[in-house]
């Protein structure tokens, strides 16, 4: 009798533990999704802001056709991107192209005096910030999820119910990668 009671008690504890783990994992997976959605909202916002920016700078920066075209092309690459890795690369490309545009804009005092341009610049710079802060939080959430999926003992439950490790959002900054190429030959 006593043996049966102990066994039953043990069963209850194990079941409660499994349920707790499972719910924790589901909660984390939802958090990963939610924090990705936040990144996506900001990427979309940047995408939408660019035509407006082009319209504003076009008149002032007619001599910088290449820089302007690079931004337009980078934006088009995003809508054309197929899979996730390709999209990430395209987003990185847009960040670089925008950076160049704002760097060049420094030498146009008329443009810097326009309130319209200033507010657009703040809007875009802030959106870039929001992208990186949302990404920072997303990566943190992914790390917590992956720790649970890979570490003992929660990995047992994760394996049983097919929870898999999520991928980090790493930036593909073309400009940064391409820079240190020195040829000594």
């Amino acid at each position: 009798m006593l043996f049966v009671l102990i066994l039953a008690g043990l069963m209850v504890v194990v079941v409660a533990w499994v349920v707790g783990m499972y719910n924790g994992l589901v909660g984390l997976r939802n958090q990963v999704k939610e924090s990705w959605a936040q990144v996506d909202v900001q990427l979309k916002r940047r995408f939408d802001l660019i035509p407006n920016l082009m319209e504003t700078v076009k008149g002032y920066m007619s001599h910088e056709r290449e820089t302007l075209e690079a931004v337009t092309k980078a934006r088009a690459a995003i809508s054309g991107a197929g899979g996730m890795p390709e999209r990430m690369a395209a987003e990185g490309g847009l960040t670089a192209a925008l950076g160049r545009l704002f760097a060049v804009s420094e030498s146009y005092p008329d443009l810097k005096a326009s309130t319209n341009f200033l507010s657009l610049q703040e809007e875009l710079a802030s959106t870039e910030n929001k992208i990186s802060f949302a990404r920072q939080f997303y990566n943190e959430t992914v790390m917590r999820m992956n720790n649970k999926v890979q570490m003992f003992p929660s990995n047992i439950i994760a394996g049983m119910f097919n929870f898999t490790a999520e991928t980090f959002f790493e930036v593909e900054d073309e400009a940064e990668r391409a820079a240190p190429k020195v040829d000594f030959s």
Partner: peptide, 12 residues
Amino acid sequence: EAAAPTREKVSA
């Protein structure tokens, strides 16, 4: 370690 974002320079 998981996330080291690039800081955007904001001119405002």
